Amino acid sequence: RLHIEVEGTELMKKLVEEAKRRNLNVRAKVENGKWIIEID
């Protein structure tokens, strides 16, 4: 499991799109103003 903290929506969208393209499980949520992304 990969755990990433990202500031900025554009970067988050790119990460999520790339993960979906590779058929990975992606969860994204906002915590303290940062995107928290978990990829399995």
Rank of each mutant, 00 (worst) to 15 (best):
N23Q: 06
M12N: 01
E7N: 11
V30P: 07
D40R: 05
L2T: 09
N32M: 01
I37Y: 01
E5M: 11
I36L: 06
R1M: 13
I4F: 13
H3I: 15
G33T: 01
T9W: 15
I37M: 01
K29N: 08
K29R: 15
A28G: 03
I4M: 09
L24M: 06
V30E: 15
L11Q: 13
R21D: 06
R21S: 10
K20F: 08
M12K: 02
R21H: 08
E38T: 09
E17H: 06
I36P: 01
V26G: 01
V16D: 01
E31Q: 09
I39W: 07
G8F: 14
E17T: 06
I4V: 08
N32Y: 03
R22G: 05
E31W: 01
N23D: 07
A19W: 04
A28Y: 10
H3D: 08
V26T: 01
G8R: 08
V30H: 15
M12A: 11
R22E: 07
I4W: 11
K14H: 10
V6D: 04
L11G: 06
E38M: 09
V30K: 15
L15W: 06
M12R: 01
V16L: 12
E18F: 07
I36E: 06
R1N: 10
N32A: 02
N23R: 06
K29V: 12
H3P: 09
E5F: 10
I39V: 07
V6G: 09
L11V: 10
N32D: 12
I37V: 11
K29C: 12
L2Q: 10
E31V: 14
E38N: 04
G8T: 15
E5Y: 10
K14L: 13
N23K: 07
E10F: 02
T9M: 13
D40V: 12
E10M: 04
G33K: 03
V16M: 11
R21G: 07
L2V: 13
I37A: 00
D40N: 09
G33H: 02
L11Y: 06
K13M: 13
K13H: 11
A19M: 13
N23I: 04
E31Y: 03
I4L: 11
K29I: 12
E31M: 08
E5D: 09
M12S: 04
H3T: 15
V26Q: 00
